[in-house]
């Protein structure tokens, strides 16, 4: 399969690791995204913020990587926060009834500020 062209920012802000994918997270890019999420978990930070404000599009393979990440976070007692979703991306979480499963904030600043 193609690897896709997803670019992912990775930084530490205080006690939070913030990863910021940019572009589309479809079938091809989900594998790349999963690799970055695992790298973020390896940092063993108490909070992991996934800033989706630069994600134009996501399908269910992309959502599945986040569900997998949530499972890892729960086991590691890491707080996983999603933020910055546009309307189209949020709609996928809504249809999949995952909008109440994930902790979601409007912006990365909100996620980082959360205690």
């Amino acid at each position: 399969m193609a690897d896709g062209t997803l670019q992912v920012g990775f930084e530490t802000q205080g006690s939070a690791v913030v990863i910021s994918p940019q572009g589309e997270i479809g079938y091809s890019e989900a594998t790349v995204f999963r690799t970055w999420l695992r790298k973020a978990h390896d940092a063993k930070s108490p909070r992991l913020v996934v800033d989706l404000s630069k994600v134009d599009y996501m399908n269910t393979p992309g959502v599945a990587t986040l569900v997998e990440s949530l499972q890892i976070a729960k086991k590691a007692k890491t707080r996983l926060i999603l933020c910055g979703m546009n309307e189209k991306v949020f709609a996928i979480f809504k249809i999949a009834r995952l909008d109440t499963v994930f902790e979601i904030t409007p912006t990365a600043a909100d996620a980082i500020a959360k205690a």
Binding site: G84, E87, V89, F90, A91, K94, I95, I104, T105, P106
Partner: peptide, 13 residues
């Protein structure tokens, strides 16, 4: 349209 009350992610926190 698949989601009766999407609202938009930016309104959720």
């Amino acid at each position: 349209c698949g989601l009766p009350d999407a609202g938009g992610g930016k309104n959720h926190g």
